[in-house]
């Protein structure tokens, strides 16, 4: 069953995450609305992964509020997340997708057809019966994407899905993400790859040390960064 209400916009209001005396995320204020992809950009350790987990609802903030479409208790049903290293269930490629479909409440009779369509969509039709754990890194990311898409999400959160992939695999993942965005799914993707930002982003959130340093349209961020840190990052200098 699909919740009739929307998870968008996703709003973070003064959200902080602390572990003991360490501040991981510091008073984030953020609104993610429907539309073209938003990329969360920043150096390693900036808190991108933590932010995505909060957006998914996997972790709770230690301060502040998160709302999805105005509700604080929205179930995860219409969100999906792709981890940097997704876990492949010990079964075939097709069975991994069928598993996600079953969880999404798709009746058994419709699953085979949907599995076929999703395999087609991520280009894994030939590997349907291959054990998922024996797929290559890029293939595993594409399978994880198919699993995420099986949930028919409104928001798809991705945590540097191409970080460990070669250019060809990166391209095929980006193509799937692109087409998902075109089909109306809100993409929120973490990346520290400026080329990827240029290729995919419509909107950029730039984070440094757990805080949002700058946000705006991708073109503005790349061509006219307003903060020193953003300018250094775009130039390719090390930002710590």
């Amino acid at each position: 069953m699909r919740a009739p209400v929307s998870d968008l916009p996703l709003v973070l209001d003064g959200v902080s995450l602390r572990a003991g005396s360490i501040t991981i995320l510091d008073r984030l204020n953020l609104t993610i609305a429907s539309g073209a992809p938003t990329l969360i950009v920043g150096p390693n350790g900036a808190g991108k992964t933590r932010l995505l987990r909060l957006c998914m609802g996997l972790d709770r903030p230690t301060a502040g509020h998160i709302t999805w479409g105005g509700r604080a208790d929205s179930p995860m049903a219409r969100r999906a997340i792709l981890f940097q290293r997704p876990v492949m269930l010990r079964r075939t490629t097709a069975a991994n997708i069928a598993y996600a479909l079953a969880l999404a409440g798709i009746p058994r009779s419709e699953r085979a057809e949907r599995v076929g369509a999703l395999l087609e969509r991520v280009g894994l039709s030939d590997l349907a019966q291959r054990p998922a754990r024996r797929l290559s890194g890029g293939e595993q990311q594409r399978l994880a994407l198919a699993r995420a898409l099986a949930r028919d999400p409104q928001i798809l959160l991705l945590d540097e899905p191409t970080a460990n992939l070669d250019p060809a695999a990166t391209r095929s993942v980006e193509e799937i993400v692109q087409s998902a965005a075109e089909s109306g799914i809100k993409i929120v993707m973490a990346s520290h790859d400026l080329g990827q930002v240029r290729r995919l982003a419509s909107h950029v959130i730039f984070m440094v040390r757990g805080a949002i340093c700058e946000q705006g349209k991708a073109g503005d961020f790349l061509d006219h960064p307003t903060t020193e840190e953003a300018a250094a990052f775009v130039r390719g200098d090390l930002v710590i």
Partner: peptide, 20 residues
């Protein structure tokens, strides 16, 4: 993380983990 994100309930977790 993966199972939580897929919204798998307690019984489903047990079944999935046992099977895997």
């Amino acid at each position: 993380d993966e199972l939580t994100a897929m919204d798998v309930g307690p019984a489903g977790r047990m079944a999935t983990l046992l099977w895997d």
